[in-house]
Amino acid sequence: MTNTAWGRAEQQDFRSRVRGSLLGGAIGDALGAGIEFDSLESIREKYGPQGVTDYVPAYGRRGAVTDDTQMTLFTVDGLIRAQVRRDVGAWHPPSDVHAAHRRWYATQHDWGPDERKADTGWLAAQEWLYAQRAPGNACLSGLADETAGTLAAPKNPDSKGCGAVMRSAPFGLLVGWEPHLVFQLAAECGAQTHGHPTGYLSAAAFAVIVHGLVRGESLPAAAHRALTLLAAQPGHEETAHALQRALAQVRTGAPSAERVAELGEGWVAEEALAMGLYCALVAEDVTHGLLLAVNHGGDSDSTGSICGNLLGALHGETVLPPAWLAELEGRGTILELADDFALEMTHGAALHTAEHMAPGWQARYPRD
């Protein structure tokens, strides 16, 4: 889709889905943050038979997000930077996403934005992002130097943790791209930290599912498209099997924490994807789906984040529970970034050309 193809209603729908996916993912992340390392038994003992039904304190506050949301936001930043650099012939999105994730890596080591370089743009200036929220070892080691992992020479080739999946929803927001290109880009960027095929192919499958939702497909249809694209990839079996199990689990009876647990714990990529997908598939509404996604004895914030990314992309921002939005850490930044992404995708040609770039956009997303 080109910029001239966007009508007013299309722009509004797209922006709502972008906001919905990013905010929904952050809400799911925050719901799971306080129980990430707890067993289901201990969750029920502490919060009652339904488990958590609201935010619980994590990192000193309610509504705190983790590295899942942090890295997702920097993925968006990298994709915007790729678009603005395209005018001058510097078109290699994996490099721009890697550079953005390196900016995230700096937030895990620097004292604050005062230490950032002048060309890092506005997102890296947000002081609240300079907090360590249990980042995964593969993400940290994969981004520790300037060399970017590739599919041919991936970083951490034995790692299939969920750290590449949980940050990959933004690739699916590239609504003007064809699905196979979204899949390829997400896989390439996943291999920058998680080099096991299941690690990066799960990220690619997740991106394609989000992409289908933003384009108006149903969730089952989007999942089947991901399965079709997976089938041609070496090492796809674990990811494909996990997706198939999630789709089949819908037909086994009423949703429950026990049925979620049958899909895994979520620490590895394919399990996190399957659990988040299942909860989105059976969700009666966003609240039901997200609470189902976090109340288990595994990686609650990542499965909640994945489920929220999906439900937000499917329904748009207006379905998100207002009380959870009100307490969400970084809501203003997330909204601002979502709107910038939508603006870039729908009006990029008005913001920058090879010869000129709007000063405000240059300051936010430096081209050089």
Rank of each mutant, 00 (worst) to 15 (best):
E258T: 12
E258A: 09
E258N: 02
R259K: 14
R259D: 01
R259F: 01
V260P: 09
A261W: 08
A261R: 13
A261C: 13
A261K: 11
E262I: 00
E262Q: 13
E262W: 01
E262Y: 00
E262P: 01
L263E: 05
L263A: 06
L263T: 06
G264M: 10
G264C: 10
G264V: 09
G264D: 09
G264P: 12
G264Y: 05
E265S: 14
E265T: 12
E265M: 14
E265P: 00
E265D: 14
E265L: 15
G266A: 06
G266F: 00
G266K: 05
G266T: 04
G266N: 07
W267E: 11
W267L: 12
W267K: 11
W267T: 07
W267Y: 14
W267P: 06
V268E: 08
A269E: 10
A269Q: 12
A269S: 15
A269V: 07
A269R: 11
E270V: 00
E270L: 03
E270W: 05
E271V: 04
E271Y: 02
E271G: 03
E271D: 02
E271M: 04
E271T: 01
A272F: 03
A272D: 04
A272R: 02
A272V: 04
L273I: 01
L273W: 04
L273F: 04
L273A: 05
L273G: 03
L273T: 00
L273E: 00
A274N: 02
A274P: 03
A274S: 03
A274T: 02
A274W: 02
A274G: 03
A274I: 03
A274R: 08
M275K: 14
M275R: 11
M275E: 11
M275A: 09
G276K: 04
G276H: 03
G276L: 05
G276C: 10
G276R: 03
G276M: 05
L277S: 10
L277F: 10
L277I: 12
L277V: 12
L277W: 11
L277C: 11
Y278F: 11
Y278G: 01
Y278E: 01
C279D: 13
C279A: 14
C279Q: 11
C279N: 10
C279K: 10
C279E: 13
A280Y: 13
A280H: 11
A280S: 15
A280M: 14
L281Y: 11
L281E: 08
L281D: 08
L281S: 06
V282T: 02
A283T: 12
A283I: 11
A283D: 10
E284Q: 15
E284N: 14
E284W: 11
D285I: 09
D285W: 10
D285F: 06
D285R: 09
D285A: 07
V286I: 11
V286H: 07
V286A: 07
V286F: 06
T287I: 06
T287P: 01
H288L: 15
H288C: 14
H288K: 13
H288A: 15
G289Y: 07
G289A: 05
G289I: 07
L290F: 07
L290W: 09
L290G: 02
L290M: 14
L290N: 04
L290H: 08
L290T: 02
